Computed example of a mutant assay.
Amino acid sequence: MRKILLTTALVLPLSGFAYAQTAEAPAENAADQAAQAAENSADAANDAATDAADAAATAADDAAEAASDAADATGDAAADAADATADAANDAAESADAAADASADAAADAGDAAMEGEAAADADAAEAAALEAEMASSDKIVREQAGNELRVDWITGANVTSPDGTAVGQVRDLIVDTDNGQLIAAIIGVGGFLGIGEKQIAVPLDQLSINYDAEEITTELTVDEAKAAPEYVFRERAAAPAPAPADPAAPAADPAAAPADPAMAPADPAAPADPAAPADPAAPAPAN
């Protein structure tokens, strides 16, 4: 029994020590694990921080490079735009210079043409003035109507009266002597009505009294003598010589040449007669 007690007395302390050691071991292990976990967490945090810093630095570098590239691209575009603007400005300046030169040349040409035109006009004016001075003293023309001279227009169509004031007829035409250029007779229409059925007689011009520029024309013939006088006989009008036949070797007429003077054209036989026009000396006399 004593051995049992002794054994028990020895075993119990040892068991308590072992138990104590056994209890202390898990605590130490937990502390170690906690420390290890803390260390691991610290390492992970350090690694994460390092990774984040590296990522931030990389992003910053990328952003800086992108900004630099953008700045380079913008600068290149701005430079290109500046170059294009400068080229356009140079082209516009060259065009303006060319236009200015063309305008100056045109103005110079216009000035030269104007000077030439003025010189030609001055020469023409001088020539015309010289010709006018020459013609002013030429005997080829008559410059002024004298007091004793009459116009045919005043005489033709004027009424002719007898010495007692009775109407004899009207002056229809005048006869001119081409040898001496003098008027020798007046053709007077006698009888009829409004020129129809009248007889034309010729009265020497020196037998007529023409007063007040043909406002009053009188004859020594009475009305009966005028009616009994023979009718004046007109001669046939001489025809102009026919033009020479065209030379087949001559050049054709220029269609751009000025047309012939219509005043020189022959009268249209189909045109109605002008009652105010003087009678044609070559026309046949109307029947009594």
Rank of each mutant, 00 (worst) to 15 (best):
A20Y: 10
L150R: 00
L6F: 02
D247F: 03
A242F: 10
A285R: 05
D139I: 08
A81I: 00
A64G: 13
D101W: 03
E94A: 12
A242G: 13
G181K: 08
G192L: 08
G189W: 01
E39W: 04
E216Y: 11
A93G: 09
T156D: 01
G75C: 08
L208P: 00
A240V: 09
E231W: 06
F193T: 15
L150N: 00
T7Q: 08
A38T: 13
P275H: 08
A282V: 03
E144H: 08
D43E: 15
A57P: 02
A113W: 06
A129S: 11
D54F: 08
A44N: 14
G157L: 00
A258K: 01
A71S: 14
F234N: 05
A100I: 12
A53Q: 12
T22Q: 10
D32Y: 14
A228N: 11
E198K: 05
P284D: 07
I187A: 00
A30C: 01
N159T: 09
L131G: 02
D47V: 03
A252I: 06
N211T: 11
A285L: 09
S68M: 10
A98E: 07
T74I: 13
P26Q: 02
L183R: 01
A45I: 13
A37Y: 06
A59Y: 05
D69Y: 06
A78G: 04
E118N: 05
A31G: 14
I210H: 00
Q145L: 07
L10Y: 13
T22P: 00
A44T: 02
F193Q: 10
A146D: 14
V223N: 02
E28P: 01
T166D: 06
K199C: 11
E220K: 15
E94Y: 05
A202S: 15
D177F: 10
A42C: 04
P248A: 01
N180H: 05
G165L: 01
A45N: 12
D105T: 07
P204E: 06
Q200N: 12
P272C: 02
A35K: 09
E118V: 08
E28M: 02
A60E: 15
T50S: 11
A49S: 15
E134C: 00
D213V: 11
P13L: 02
G191M: 11
G111L: 14
E149H: 12
N90K: 10
L14T: 15
A253G: 15
N40L: 04
S138L: 09
N288G: 15
Q33V: 14
A130L: 11
T218H: 15
D54Q: 15
A93L: 09
Q33C: 04
E215H: 02
A158T: 15
A56V: 04
G191R: 03
A37C: 12
Q21W: 07
D280M: 02
A202P: 00
D109C: 13
W154T: 06
S68F: 14
G165W: 01
A71G: 05
S162A: 15
Q207E: 15
D51C: 07
D124P: 03
D43M: 06
A82I: 03
S103K: 06
S95K: 04
E118K: 07
A114Y: 13
N90P: 07
A119T: 14
A84P: 04
